[in-house]
């Protein structure tokens, strides 16, 4: 057994079907290591186990459990839940941590239901008090901070992607192949699959330090090039308001707000966004907010540190030029 097995936190990391680590493992292991000993679990081809254990140890895992995905076939979620159940029985962790991705949340929720454990979803951090593990939640678009805990037993937690900066120090690699008994639970099957095409070198919206978002005020999808030019000048990610998504300017994956992605970057720039409460709920905890809008009554100005009432089609090009100028100096 591990020499560092005190307060184990079981961390489910997401991998591609080929066994490549998805983004976010470092964040999960960092959060786990801040309260205990991070034990990583991956469902992946056995041939990838050795490499995965190196990568995950590098990110702070004191132990790495790999369940062979060969038997999983095209099943959607049951093999992952079965792997969680087997790892839980072996590790006896104080908490179970998974990414708040569609897959991570599905697996964590099913595992919590199966194991009769308390569940805390979409948390923005974990901590420890005298009685054990607690989870931090950012509620109603960050208007409230709520802490939760389990009345008894381990807490199953999903961590919002991009919410935690903590990173763990590298550990010596310690791999264990995990034997998993199939539960035979009914499951859906994947009939076709493709990787999402990463079209740009821009940072991912979740977890980006700088986000530039466009709204209805852009007027068209073509005009989003203005948002892109500013995002690229600052090295930021691109977002959009629901109005811009509903108008068909950009895909839904870019939506910031109540029903889209919640972001909390160092800098958020809102271009032509009125700032409906639905949008503010997804960005109002940003450290610094800048808004450009031609309507002086736009509610976005109520939360902006610096607001410009003006035409974004003249202000933004000037701003991009000024940024390039400052960088050149």
């Amino acid at each position: 057994m591990s020499s560092n097995s005190g307060n184990p936190i079981l961390v489910l990391v997401d991998t591609s079907p080929e066994g490549q680590l998805r983004a976010g493992a470092g964040e999960l292991l960092g959060a786990a290591a801040s309260v205990g000993s991070a034990v990583a679990l991956a469902l992946a081809p056995a041939a990838q186990a050795e490499r995965l254990s190196q990568e995950l140890a590098e990110l702070g895992a004191t132990r790495v459990l790999v369940a062979d995905s060969a038997a999983a076939g095209n099943a959607v979620i049951a093999p992952l839940v079965d792997a969680l159940a087997a790892a839980y029985a072996q590790v006896q962790p104080e908490a179970v941590l998974a990414p708040n991705s569609i897959r991570g949340r599905d697996a964590a929720a099913r595992f919590a239901a199966r194991a009769c454990l308390a569940l805390a979803v979409d948390t923005v951090g974990i901590d420890r008090d005298a009685e054990g593990i607690i989870a931090h939640h950012s509620v109603y678009g960050g208007a409230y901070l709520v802490d939760s805990a389990a009345t008894t037993g381990a807490l199953v937690i999903t961590l919002r992607q991009g919410s935690s900066d903590a990173r763990a120090t590298a550990q010596p690699a310690q791999l264990e192949l995990l034997a998993v008994q199939s539960s035979g639970a009914p499951d859906a099957v994947i009939t076709s699959r493709e990787e999402a095409v990463i079209e740009s070198s821009r940072p991912d919206l979740r977890g980006a330090d700088i986000v530039v978002s466009g709204g209805r005020g852009l007027g068209s999808g073509e005009n989003f090039s203005l948002v892109e030019s500013l995002a690229d000048a600052l090295g930021g990610a691109i977002g959009a308001s629901r109005a811009a998504v509903d108008a068909g300017y950009v895909p839904q994956t870019m939506q910031v707000g109540q029903t889209g992605v919640t972001v909390a970057p160092q800098l958020y720039i809102a271009l032509g966004i009125s700032g409906a409460i639905q949008h503010r709920a997804g960005m109002q905890t940003s450290k610094t907010i800048i808004a450009i809008n031609k309507d002086p009554e736009a509610p976005i100005f109520d939360v902006a540190d610096f607001g410009v009432v003006g035409d974004l089609f003249t202000v933004v090009p000037q701003l991009v030029e000024a940024i390039e100028g400052k960088r050149a100096n």
Partner: peptide, 29 residues
């Protein structure tokens, strides 16, 4: 039975509006 319970809740201080200007040709700068 194991349940998830709220152990504390606090309101985050409301954001206040900062500086606001009307563009007079140099807002970008």
């Amino acid at each position: 039975e194991a349940r998830s319970i709220v152990i504390s809740a606090a309101a985050r201080p409301a954001r206040s509006a900062g500086r606001r200007i009307v563009d007079e040709g140099d807002a970008g700068q």
